[in-house]
C-alpha cells in the first residue's frame, strides 16, 4: 500500500476517533446553541413564541394555582376593590367641582373617553427576576391586544406583550425591557422611567433637567405622550435623588405606588384613538 493512502486513511480514522471521543461535548454544544437561539430570538426580537404563559395548557394550570391564592388574599383583594370604588366615586361628574372652571372640566372628561378600560385578574406574577411578567385571565376574545397598558387601582403595572384567545401576558414595570415616559405631577417636567433590577419597590427616573424643582415625596405620573397610557396615571413618589454635575440631569429613585407582590386585579387600558397618533409617529421614524 502506498504511504499516502495509509496516511489519509489514518487522518480520516483519527478524525472519526476524535468525533467519537468528544461526541458528548459536541452534542452539548449543539443543544446549547439551540437553547441560545430560543433565548435570543425571544428576548431581542420580541417575537411570538408558542412557549409562554398565555399558552392554553400552561395558563389553565396557572389559573388553578391562582384560585388557591385567591382564598388566601381575599381580604387584600377586598381592600383593593373598595379603594378603587372610592377612586371612581370621586370621578363621578357631580363630584368634580365644575363651577370655577367649567370649560376645563369638560375637556378633561372628553379626554377620558378616548380610553377604554377592561378589568382582568392576575393569575401569575413575579417580582424577583431580571425579566418579570404578569399573566392576566383576559385575552383577545375580550378585546385585549399587544401594546395595551396595564394599570391597577394603585398605579401603573405594565404593558401587554402576548395575547391568546383567553389569556394575555404583560411585561411588568419590573422588567429590564420596560421603559415609560413619566413626569413630575406638579411641574410637568418629563423623563424616562426604567427599572434597575434591584428592588421590586423602586424604579429610576432619568432625564429630568437640573433646573426642575425636585423634592422627596413628589408624585411621579405618566406623561401621556405615548399611545399606551393616559396622562396622570400614578407611578410612585420620589424617594431620593441626585444631580449629576457634568450632565445636568437628575437621577431620581422612585418608590413605586403599586405593591407588585400583591397584585390581584388590574385594568387593561386601550387608547381607542391611538392608532392615528402611532401611524403619524411611525411616518416620522421612517423618513
Amino acid at each position: 500500500m502506498a504511504p499516502g493512502v495509509t496516511n489519509s486513511f489514518g487522518i480520516m480514522r483519527n478524525f472519526i476517533r476524535f468525533i467519537i471521543r468528544y461526541h458528548f461535548l459536541f452534542l452539548f454544544l449543539l443543544f446549547e446553541t439551540f437553547c441560545f437561539y430560543l433565548l435570543i430570538n425571544y428576548n431581542h426580537r420580541h417575537q411570538e413564541t408558542f412557549i409562554n404563559s398565555s399558552g392554553k395548557v400552561v395558563a389553565s394550570f396557572l389559573e388553578i394555582s391562582g384560585t388557591f391564592k385567591d382564598y388566601v388574599s381575599l381580604r387584600r383583594a377586598n381592600e383593593e376593590l373598595s379603594r378603587e370604588n372610592a377612586l371612581l366615586r370621586t370621578q363621578i361628574p357631580e363630584n368634580i367641582p365644575s363651577i370655577s372652571e367649567p370649560k376645563l372640566a369638560r375637556q378633561e372628561s372628553d379626554d377620558l373617553f378616548i380610553y377604554q378600560y377592561r378589568a382582568g385578574k392576575v393569575i401569575n406574577n413575579s417580582v424577583h427576576r431580571a425579566h418579570n411578567f404578569i399573566t392576566i385571565n383576559k385575552g383577545s376574545k375580550h378585546g385585549i391586544a399587544p401594546e395595551m397598558g396595564v394599570i391597577s387601582a394603585r398605579g401603573l403595572v405594565g404593558i401587554v406583550r402576548h395575547v391568546s384567545p383567553n389569556y394575555s401576558t404583560a411585561i411588568s414595570l419590573l422588567n429590564n425591557q420596560f421603559r415609560v415616559s413619566a413626569k413630575l405631577r406638579d411641574s410637568n417636567y418629563f423623563g424616562v422611567l426604567e427599572w434597575d433590577g434591584k428592588s421590586y419597590q423602586h424604579a429610576i427616573l432619568t432625564e429630568i433637567p437640573g433646573h426642575a424643582p425636585v423634592s422627596t415625596g413628589d408624585a411621579i405620573v405618566t406623561s401621556g405622550y405615548s399611545t399606551i397610557f393616559p396622562e396622570g396615571i400614578l407611578i410612585g413618589t420620589i424617594e431620593d435623588y441626585q444631580l449629576h454635575q457634568g450632565e445636568g440631569f437628575y437621577e431620581i429613585r422612585v418608590k413605586l405606588s403599586v405593591d407588585f407582590k400583591n397584585l390581584t386585579y388590574v385594568e387593561v387600558v386601550e387608547k381607542t384613538s391611538g392608532e392615528e397618533q402611532k401611524q403619524l409617529e411611525n411616518l416620522m421614524q421612517n423618513d
Binding site: E32, C35, I40, T49, I51, N52, G55, N124
Partner: peptide, 19 residues
C-alpha cells in the same frame, strides 16, 4: 421556562447541568 416566560434560560441551564 413556559411557566416563567423565560424561554431558553432554564433550558440552557438544564442542558449545562446534564453536561
Amino acid at each position: 421556562d413556559a411557566f416563567l416566560n423565560t424561554i431558553g434560560v432554564h433550558a440552557s441551564a438544564g442542558v449545562f447541568l446534564a453536561y
